[in-house]
Simulated assay, not measured.
Amino acid sequence: MVIGYLVLFANYGLLSLITFCLYGLDKSAARRGRWRVQESTLHFLSLFGGWPGAMLGQKVFRHKTRKRYFQVMFWLTVLLNSIVLGGAAYFFNHLHVG
Rank of each mutant, 00 (worst) to 15 (best):
P52V: 07
V7T: 12
G50T: 08
N11Y: 01
L8C: 11
Q58R: 15
R32D: 05
M73K: 15
V60M: 02
V2P: 02
Y5E: 07
L47A: 11
S46N: 13
G49H: 06
Q58H: 10
W75C: 09
S28C: 14
M55A: 13
F48A: 07
G98H: 04
T41V: 06
A30T: 05
A29H: 06
K64D: 11
V2G: 10
F70V: 12
G13P: 05
G33V: 01
G24N: 02
C21D: 14
V97E: 01
I3C: 04
G50C: 04
N81L: 06
L8V: 08
R31T: 08
C21F: 08
T19L: 10
T65R: 12
G33Q: 01
L8Y: 15
A88N: 07
H94W: 03
R36T: 01
Y12L: 06
A54W: 01
L17F: 15
F20C: 05
K64S: 13
L42Q: 04
M1K: 13
Y5V: 07
S46K: 04
A29M: 13
R31W: 07
M73N: 08
R34K: 15
V2A: 14
W51T: 09
L80W: 14
P52Q: 04
Y12I: 12
R32Q: 12
N11R: 13
L42G: 00
A54R: 00
L45C: 01
K64W: 14
R36G: 02
